[in-house]
Amino acid sequence: MMTERGGICVQDLVKRAGLAQSTVSSYLSMMEKCDLLISERHGKWTYYRRNEQGIQKLGQAVGEEL
């Protein structure tokens, strides 16, 4: 379920992806470390959303290398 801030909870991603929670969390953590996602904690839930600036930087870097 999306929040009003545009984030999605890990459990919702697990259901949609059909993968283990640990696998989804690992992927999300990697993407956050690469500055592609922003996480926000609400109680026991963590919500993720796209980091548009990080995604734009990645696109520029890829464009420069091609």
Rank of each mutant, 00 (worst) to 15 (best):
residue 49 R to L: 10
residue 15 K to G: 12
residue 12 D to M: 11
residue 46 T to M: 07
residue 6 G to N: 07
residue 45 W to Q: 11
residue 39 S to V: 09
residue 45 W to F: 08
residue 48 Y to N: 12
residue 36 L to K: 04
residue 7 G to F: 02
residue 32 E to R: 08
residue 14 V to T: 14
residue 29 S to E: 08
residue 28 L to G: 05
residue 41 R to V: 04
residue 17 A to Q: 06
residue 41 R to S: 04
residue 50 R to A: 15
residue 35 D to F: 09
residue 31 M to H: 01
residue 8 I to M: 14
residue 33 K to E: 14
residue 32 E to M: 01
residue 55 I to D: 10
residue 17 A to N: 04
residue 61 A to K: 09
residue 33 K to C: 02
residue 34 C to R: 06
residue 18 G to L: 11
residue 7 G to M: 00
residue 2 M to T: 11
residue 43 G to D: 13
residue 4 E to A: 15
residue 42 H to F: 14
residue 59 G to Q: 04
residue 60 Q to H: 09
residue 57 K to H: 00
residue 46 T to W: 06
residue 58 L to I: 05
residue 7 G to E: 08
residue 55 I to Y: 00
residue 66 L to K: 12
residue 29 S to Q: 03
residue 47 Y to Q: 11
residue 39 S to I: 06
residue 20 A to V: 15
residue 46 T to V: 11
residue 12 D to W: 02
residue 63 G to W: 11
residue 46 T to A: 02
residue 27 Y to S: 03
residue 62 V to S: 03
residue 12 D to E: 15
residue 6 G to T: 12
residue 64 E to W: 10
residue 60 Q to F: 03
residue 59 G to S: 05
residue 37 L to V: 00
residue 30 M to D: 11
residue 15 K to P: 06
residue 58 L to N: 06
residue 28 L to R: 04
residue 28 L to P: 01
residue 50 R to D: 14
residue 1 M to Y: 11
residue 66 L to F: 01
residue 53 Q to G: 10
residue 64 E to M: 12
residue 37 L to Q: 00
residue 32 E to S: 01
residue 54 G to H: 01
residue 53 Q to D: 08
residue 63 G to E: 10
residue 24 V to A: 05
residue 65 E to W: 01
residue 45 W to G: 06
residue 18 G to P: 09
residue 32 E to W: 00
residue 66 L to Y: 06
residue 41 R to P: 02
residue 38 I to N: 09
residue 57 K to W: 02
residue 39 S to M: 07
residue 51 N to E: 02
residue 29 S to H: 08
residue 43 G to A: 07
residue 3 T to G: 04
residue 33 K to N: 13
residue 30 M to R: 12
residue 6 G to S: 14
residue 66 L to S: 09
residue 26 S to C: 13
residue 22 S to D: 03
residue 37 L to I: 01
residue 29 S to V: 10
residue 22 S to N: 04
residue 1 M to H: 15
residue 42 H to G: 13
residue 24 V to C: 01
residue 61 A to T: 05
residue 33 K to W: 02
residue 57 K to F: 05
residue 58 L to M: 06
residue 53 Q to V: 13
residue 46 T to S: 05
residue 15 K to S: 04
residue 60 Q to L: 04
residue 48 Y to F: 15
residue 42 H to I: 14
residue 53 Q to N: 06
residue 64 E to D: 10
residue 44 K to C: 08
residue 18 G to E: 06
residue 38 I to S: 11
residue 52 E to V: 14
residue 18 G to F: 00
residue 18 G to C: 02
residue 21 Q to C: 10
residue 64 E to S: 15
residue 21 Q to D: 14
residue 53 Q to H: 13
residue 28 L to E: 03
